[in-house]
Each structure stands twice: as structure tokens, then as C-alpha cells.
Amino acid sequence: MQATPALTVEHLTKRFGGRVAVDDVSFTVAAGEVFGFLGPNGAGKTTTVRMLGTLISPTSGSAIVAGLPLSPANGVAIRQQIAVMPEAPGLYLRLTVTENLEFFAGLYRIRDRARIPAALEAVGLQGRATDLCGNLSKGLRQRVALARALLNDPAVLFLDEPTSGLDPVASREVHGLIDGLRERGVTVFLTTHRLEEAERLCDRVAILNTTLRTIGRTDDLRDRLFRKRLLVETRAPLTDPGSVFDGSPGVTGWEANGSGVYEIVVTDAKLAAPDVARALVAAGADVLSLAEQRHSLEDVYLELISEDVEATR
């Protein structure tokens, strides 16, 4: 990744009348990064994308988008450098796929019309170029919208809920396309509330709920929020589990969680696991499994969002 960030956001705030949609949000996105922007409905994800896409003005705060300060004077220059794929594909249904792309190529003043078939090829739609968009399935329309977003070779590509309303097969296709963008070095700003999608695709994620709740790599977020644990399952309950676990290096605590199931709190799972295994074997236990307990991004998300829900009660 390069040193210059593709996006720098500082204290960005947006109010609609008395309602605060986005409050004091700051983050950076490195060039070539796939950055996930997560949050529940109404968290301010789309508002943030619209501000960074120069569609709406921030109430306060600042941002640098593709090297340009976010300001009305830079609106055209910023929009020339970015592409935004909104939640709805927004295609002209009475026009063909190629006609839709020709229109947008004209708006970006792209003279090299070979980019249109190239963009269609990138999303696997070269065979549907002459189809009317109104005759395409939702998944195919989403692909056309992605081809449209690739036309101007954007420095930053904003994808707002790109798999919203798609079936699992179409969603997987879009995921494949985003993977392709990562390989091409495109900076992707992906808003979603599908956590498995963010976990699978993003280098880093930010969780937003009007304010920025956390930001980082998913592994780091897990480590930050949850203690590391090993899960041990034995054929029969241990007669004296304390004598087995308490003496093992790296173990800071444990608890029995059902018959023959133990959750062991450790400082480092990879270092502690061999010692725990040796202690179990020495105690004559029949070990069925020993594994690190994995917290998903969903656990992280729910932990943070439930804190907000608790706070508002």
C-alpha cells in the first residue's frame, strides 16, 4: 500500500435539521485498500458516502478525497476521480447496456470507447451488451452498475450496499468482482450491513452508528474486544480440572461449560495450546478437540451495537 491515503476524513458531521446523521467521524483509507463501512440501517453510512461523493455538504469537518480537499469548488474534480455505485443500480431501463455505458463515458469525457467493452468484460457481461437493461435480472443490473463505476478508472470506488437484495449466487458474483478490483489495486469503500461480506472482502472495517464505534482489521477488533480463549472438549469430565489448567503457562483462567467442555482464557492461544494439550494428556484425559475460540466480526459488531442500544435505554 502507498503512503498517501486515498481518503482522509476528519471530524465529519452531518445534521439534517435537528437530527444528527453522522457525528464527528474521522478515519483514513489507504490507496488500494478495501475498506468496509459497517453499521445498522440509519447509521449514517450512505450519508457519509454522499458527503464524500460531493452529493451533499458536510455540516462540519473536512475530508480529502483522492488527493483533493472536499469542497464545492472541487466538486467536479473529485467526481472525475471517483465513482459511486449506489444501493439501487440506477440504470436507464429503456436503454441497452452499451447505451447506458456510452452515456456515462460521455459524462466522464472518455474518448477511448474501448473502455466500454473492457468494463463489460471485467464484470462478465460482454455477451449482454445489446440487451435492454429493463430485461436484465437484478443481479445483472448490479453488474452493469459496477461496469459503469469502472469506466473512469476511479481512484476511489464507493460501493453502497452492493449486494443488497441480491440472492446468494448473485451476491457471490459481486464478491468475486470486488476481489477482482482488489487485485487491480482499486481503492474500494464498501458500505454494508452484511458482516460476512465485510469479513470476507475487507482489509479493514469501521463500525458506524452515527459516531464511529471502532476501526481496524477484523482480527485486531476481535482481540481488542474479546479475551482469547481455547475450547477443550474431553470424552469424560476431568476429575480435577484446576490442577490441569491452572499450572499451564499462558493460562489466566478457565471455566467448565457443560460436561467435558472447558473454556480456557489464555494470553496467546498459539503459545498456550501445546502446553494445555500436554497437561491434558498427562492427566490421562481423552481429548476430543482443542481449538482456539474464534469470534466472528458479527460478534464484534453485535457487542458494539448492543452497547449503543443499552446506552439509549
Partner: peptide
């Protein structure tokens, strides 16, 4: 109404 305004306005058109 047909959802095309937002992608249209995110292009460099003045």
C-alpha cells in the same frame, strides 16, 4: 423517481 439521479449526479457534470 426511476433511481437514476444519484449515479448521474456523482459524475463530473456541472
Amino acid at each position: 423517481d426511476q433511481g437514476t439521479l444519484e449515479p448521474f449526479l456523482t459524475t463530473p457534470i456541472e
